[in-house]
Design a protein around this nucleic acid. Sequence first.
DNA 1: TTGTACGCGTTATCAT
DNA 2: ATGATAACGCGTACAA
Lengths: 368, 368
Amino acid sequence: MTVPPQTQPVKPSAADPVEEFLKRRKKATINDVAALARVSKKTVSRIINNSPSVREETREAVNAIIARIGFRPDPQARGLAFRRSFLLGLIYDNPNAQYIVNMQMGILDKVRGSGIELVVHPCDKTSDSFLEEIRDFVELQRLSGVILLPPIAENRQLIQVLEELAVPFVRITARHGDDNSPPIKTSQVVSRDRMGCQQAADHLVELGHRRIGFIEGPHTYASAKERRQGFAEGLKAHGLDIDPAVTAEGAYSFESGFEAGQKILSQPDRPTAIFASNDEMAIGAYKAALQMGLSVPGDLSIIGFDDSPLASRIYPALTTVRLPIRDMGRTAAETLIDQDNHRKHTMIFDAALVVRDSTAPAPKTFKP
Amino acid sequence: MTVPPQTQPVKPSAADPVEEFLKRRKKATINDVAALARVSKKTVSRIINNSPSVREETREAVNAIIARIGFRPDPQARGLAFRRSFLLGLIYDNPNAQYIVNMQMGILDKVRGSGIELVVHPCDKTSDSFLEEIRDFVELQRLSGVILLPPIAENRQLIQVLEELAVPFVRITARHGDDNSPPIKTSQVVSRDRMGCQQAADHLVELGHRRIGFIEGPHTYASAKERRQGFAEGLKAHGLDIDPAVTAEGAYSFESGFEAGQKILSQPDRPTAIFASNDEMAIGAYKAALQMGLSVPGDLSIIGFDDSPLASRIYPALTTVRLPIRDMGRTAAETLIDQDNHRKHTMIFDAALVVRDSTAPAPKTFKP
DNA sequence: TTGTACGCGTTATCAT
DNA sequence: ATGATAACGCGTACAA
């Protein structure tokens, strides 16, 4: 069944240097390419880095050799010469697992096939050597870019360290820098948390809720502030306000949401709905409500934020606000890799309310 | 307020070469150290790589210089000379977010401060170029080690590729290689899934359950087989068997668990308990039960596997089997980094039943 | 025990 | 447009 290679115009002589080389079964280097193509290393290098100043003929010839012997430039050697690696660093402190993994997936969507790899580097923002450790990491690895996740993406000192290091970096954040605080001038991928919370408020009010509890996040988090503000704005549009009597601060954790829920639901004139600043706390409020014998959404409507896996799996499924985390991750990686890179970009992503089964019309009250 | 350095025994002369160097504010290289310490590069190199053949005096003197000028060897240059990088690769296809993050945390526990960094590399096992992509990744990055997660940790072809590449690697798996299948001779971190499932069976039987439904994982997963076998063994110890009439195969997903639950619970002579091979499916079964008006655990006890965040957050909290994922990750990294490394290790980790609120004594039946 | 000379695979300089 | 030669920062023969 062996077909003679009649259609092959060039008969591969046994002495073909390329064939000879392939027999040696060694990883090809730029030297091999240069020798086989009868050009200098530099020319090959120019082609690899697609410099314009190379004749089209030469380029094609060399590329043919590269393809035949399967040459791929060594990132380490390349990095040594370039004084930078082909690694992206993902630095974060605390966020939940799903957030991290979604973000990683987004980044990897972009990174895949680009010759760049992703290095994950969690850290402890409460550590004394917090900044030093990150400095060492970035400097030593000569990262070609860094992505910062909340909450440390809002850390001014950290930002300054990265600026000193002159490494391109992108911050993921919920804060649109238009407040009184001095604007942070770096590339950033911003989510419109506020918008999502406005929608949540809208949704509840339209369902007839008037007395609405609020579980907010830690005041130190930019996202917590944004969500509070968005929720407040949403209420205000209907002539309502956040009611301190049925508001509690949580720590973005399940337990804190449970406690906040207990507190809010034991108030006189109990609210008919609760908006929690994230899903973890919303689920905690579920537990508090169910333990008190309240039915969701019959007696109490609940809205969360994040659209975590919990939200869709809990029963009844949780109405929540979704952020396009994966898209944000991909975009962050894009600004780092496709660098027009000296400009500081700000990319904004919308939030969207996902209505499920934890919200229903407000129960009739017995007061007229 | 400037205190004269009276306590300083050595007066730092303005001409101190080290001080001179520090003024230049450049990153120190091995050459700087050598020059400042008046030894050769090689000696410094020996000290970095703690070769024994260096006089103690010399070592201390050089180390002093290293400390003073803050020299840290460049991983890229070092890697180029060593022909390997200081990167660990984490390769996986599909597992859930919490699993991935726990595993990453475990690995990072070990990696932190070791001068090694972690590169995450998800892949698509259904892709045509699956093996090629991984080969390229490992070869190009010259990884110093690879950690494989289930289910691709059981992929024979992949294992063969890594062996050809001669890269140290560790597989994380549920299968203790003592079956009829040819044993896989590589380093591996094994979890005793079987043990956990036996305990689950024990627990249910001791609560008086006799008719017990079973939702198993995909037959292609080693963990699914192990869990089935463990559950079967647990039942057998009490003279019971897995009952095909109330058994269904799921895909380790919430939806599949929901469907399996519906199917099992609509059987005549409905079971009083269900064991699901992971938490996702167990939560799906929750939903099925609640939709049918059954109460958990009043009418139906449920046990899951994984101790995912869902398990403790759902109401009532799910009884489940916990695996020490983070410990397993740390151990995997240890075998790669502290290499005695030519030996193939097998490290085994126990599973533990976590009893919460989704299991209760079997309801009295009306048959005598 | 220590040093010299060279190699690792690539890019940059400055010619031609 | 192309090439010779020197970096890049570190490790290893081999010699001393």
